[in-house]
Design a binder for these strands. Sequence first.
DNA 1: ATTATAATTAGAATAATTCTTGATATCATT
DNA 2: AATGATATCAAGAATTATTCTAATTATAAT
Lengths: 142, 142
Amino acid sequence: MVSPNPEVPAEIEIPEEISGLRMTRQRQEVYRTLMQQRNHPTANDVFMRVKDRLPNISLATVYNCLEALVQHGIIRQVNFERESSRYCPNLSEHGHFHDATTGVIHDVDFKPGVSLADVLNLPPGAVIDDVEITLRGKLVTL
Amino acid sequence: MVSPNPEVPAEIEIPEEISGLRMTRQRQEVYRTLMQQRNHPTANDVFMRVKDRLPNISLATVYNCLEALVQHGIIRQVNFERESSRYCPNLSEHGHFHDATTGVIHDVDFKPGVSLADVLNLPPGAVIDDVEITLRGKLVTL
DNA sequence: ATTATAATTAGAATAATTCTTGATATCATT
DNA sequence: AATGATATCAAGAATTATTCTAATTATAAT
């Protein structure tokens, strides 16, 4: 149901279905939050933000929505060490740079035309389904 | 002293101190386990194994020992997704390939002479302290 | 030997996430 | 529109890995 909210104009229009996943109101709001707040929020970050628009939503539902979105390849789940999982809607293959001083997480793209097989001695016959590259360090002003 | 016969791993002699860390009996056994069982065990795996030799050791001590060894750069802590942390004594810079079918984790070395900066568009001024590369996929027999 | 410091132990506490169960909503058919 | 089937949601309990706490023991230093 896409009845427009009279009070708040929807900033981002989200379709009723994405890649075969029915976009319920809750999933829409979770997804919208990720699209608007692109700093890799945790499930709890998303929860607090979505509550403004859906005061009755539960944290469990946010987890459910995030999982459904991840399963359908609509968003990505990113893990740093043993911290809470973070989520991002950037689907292009990319890594993450975690600035230790500010805590900010930067997306890091691959240089065009490079493949991991150029860089790593993969075991023979390895077919890669998923790659996770995490860098930790500092940003030094030159 | 390395035993010439890999099938019968002789007792690995462990010094009383490594990189400034006093090697207590517990730390010795934890470290020995990692050296002998190089399949990236979890803290609990190590615990169960060490109990054979130190029946009174506690899981908390295993965690303490592992943390001390990690802090002193004697072993590495490796995280996959949100699973339990795993530990390995391979200190050379390397990544991990997680075989989805068998669950086995393979170390993956960098090809000589390549740098991450050749491959990634790092944010300007980024100084990298630590890198984590995790691949997930299947091993296909060619 | 005595004191200080560090390490160990057992169990309680914590935090993130998942699970369970009952309630709602949506969909497909009539 | 009513019906039943299925999917989703909410609340809180349960789980799991890990860390913390406090008491005990071991080691090192004087």
